[in-house]
Design a protein around this nucleic acid. Structure first.
Lengths: 195, 195
DNA sequence: CGTCTATTTGAATGTACTCAAAAGCGGTGG
DNA sequence: CCACCGCTTTTGAGTACATTCAAATAGACG
């Protein structure tokens, strides 16, 4: 079954019958992405949300100096989009790109709006999903304000051990809001038996 | 009408009939808060969300060094809670406190759950509310990663001019993630006709 | 008016950045 | 299969941004 993992993801919060499953899966668009393939560029509209079936994606903001600031990673079983653009139908600020070869399922906004009307349970599902996303961001804000760079790095590797292996140091540094050089120095310090 | 502003807030996203308005307003609990009055302390459960009818509230995290890190402010017509604690029924990490004399309307979790069953439209309302909260946090994350302290301060005063007047400098510094001394220096620099 | 807290000032310090260059690593083509 | 290319990671020196600490000044509230 192609949609096994996304249906399991949905089932964590709402229960769908056969008919609803068909309605839902019918609007999903599967995409296979190659490493470094970009699915969203700044200034474009972002009329879809993406479920990561396999692989890793990242979303980043390119600032006026040309630096990439990584806002989030998404591994298997995560959802990722530029929510600001998706919800408000505004031009995107972010780039979304595959970190490695990946498979995603895209859900388009028009299809989602129809789905809300036909199967109102999905309002509940997305309410809970948004709530979780908000909580995650709020926790991240707490950590950025209260922890040092070293503590944030340790917390990151503990919380997302899969990322630490799949994602280059440079990108982890960007996510943590520090330079790659400085993260390299932190790693060195942590690896030397403290003397 | 006591509930005029909260009903207008709701009406931005869903339409309620007379009966639904009664059901909703019946579960709201009005509270008058004095300056510095605390409505949530760390480790307590947080079974309510708060609508700010008048005044200003702040939510902050107290780290292991005893420093207060302000996560958010809420002025009139905003909602505030420790969403991590509210949604997950976990002990709170935050303190929520009135910055000045305020009036809030509290909505308790059990009442909200009942409301979701009786009036499913509220799932939609809170879905949109969570979505907006998530977008706000994501924008803040972008700014924290890509702007300097000075730029963040300017952005803050532009976006929330009401806060800059109602909230002490010390708390703005805490929200921006810098020390009061340094914010004072930024202000001084900005006020001197650049020479 | 006096007390308490917030803000400003300045000096010394530390954290993290920039820039430049070397070393490592993976993929590709000859 | 090895040599080369491009990109990532490491290293180090010098610098800038932001903090800590201490003390003076200003403001707010009872």
């Amino acid at each position: 079954m192609e949609y096994k993992s996304i249906l399991k993801n949905i089932a964590r919060h709402i229960t769908l019958n056969e008919e609803e499953i068909v309605l839902f899966t019918a609007v999903l668009k599967k995409k296979e992405l190659k490493r470094k393939e970009v699915i969203l560029k700044p200034e474009q509209p972002c009329p879809f949300i993406n479920y990561v079936d396999q692989g890793v994606l990242r979303a980043y903001y390119t600032d006026k100096n040309g630096n990439e600031n990584i806002i989030m990673f998404a591994v298997s079983d995560w959802w990722i989009t530029d929510m600001h653009s998706f919800a408000g139908e505004k031009p995107s600020m972010l780039t979304i790109e595959a970190v490695e070869n990946s498979i995603i399922l895209q859900l388009h906004k028009v299809d989602l709006e129809k789905l809300f009307l036909k199967v109102p349970k999905f309002e509940r599902f997305f309410r809970i999903m948004m709530q979780n996303a908000y909580v995650r961001e709020q926790l991240r804000a707490v950590q950025n304000l209260s922890l040092t760079s070293e503590e944030r790095y340790l917390h990151f590797t503990k919380k997302y051990p899969q990322f630490a292996n799949q994602v280059p140091l440079k990108q982890i540094a960007s996510y943590l809001g520090i330079t790659p050089e400085f993260l390299s120095a932190i790693r060195k310090k942590l690896s030397t038996p403290n003397s």
